[in-house]
């Protein structure tokens, strides 16, 4: 589902969950099965090595009913390979996302596109004769807004990292 449509139709609330997991084969399947079994749609999922080599980090944004979320967190925590699972939907964590957007554009449009990019502090990272790739980073909402403005110019490809998140201060992510 594209971010723009998502904004227009908030069917179900979006949640952000961080997981600290054993870095072993199969852990991703085990985690995603918990979501699918309860009918949750995973909107984005980022997996990366943790600070200690034996563990990985996952940041998951997903949509589904609030009441079910508590169950999902508990089912995730129950997995032997999940060290902890934390719901960050309501806390004020630091969040960031990176997006790459390719636009096919005439020279005349290019200036307008770069104008929008500048406003969102996005960079043009590749120029072709008829295309440009923009790289933006910031909150997912900011990226949503930029994409909405760019859409009329024709985005041919969009790749987003998905939300990355870290709890502030001494709180655990």
């Amino acid at each position: 589902m594209s971010a723009a449509i998502e904004l227009a139709l908030p069917v179900q609330p979006i949640h952000t969950i961080s997981l600290f997991v054993n870095n072993v084969p199969g852990v991703l399947v085990r985690v995603s099965l918990v979501f699918s079994r309860r009918g949750f749609n995973i909107e984005s999922l980022v997996v990366s090595p943790g600070a200690e080599g034996d563990f990985s980090r996952m940041t998951v944004t997903c949509s589904g009913e609030h009441e079910v979320l508590e169950q999902i967190i508990k089912q995730l925590s129950k997995l032997v390979d999940v060290v902890h699972a934390i719901d960050h939907s309501t806390d004020n964590s630091y969040e960031v996302e990176i997006a790459l957007a390719k636009l096919e554009c005439s020279l005349s449009e290019r200036a307008q596109i770069l104008q929008i990019a500048k406003h969102f502090k996005a960079r043009a990272v590749d120029y072709g004769p008829e295309s440009v790739i923009l790289q933006a980073n910031g909150s997912s909402e900011k990226i949503d807004a930029m994409i909405m403005l760019l859409r009329p110019y024709g985005i041919t490809e969009l790749v987003r990292s998905g939300k990355l998140l870290m709890a502030r201060g001494k709180k655990t992510t």
Binding site: P25, G26, R30, L33, R37, V80, D81
Partner: peptide, 16 residues
């Protein structure tokens, strides 16, 4: 088998 059985095990191992 590891894949087939994820939903029916408490935990599982594929020995590598």
């Amino acid at each position: 088998v590891t894949g087939i059985t994820y939903p029916v095990v408490k935990h599982s191992y594929l020995v590598k």
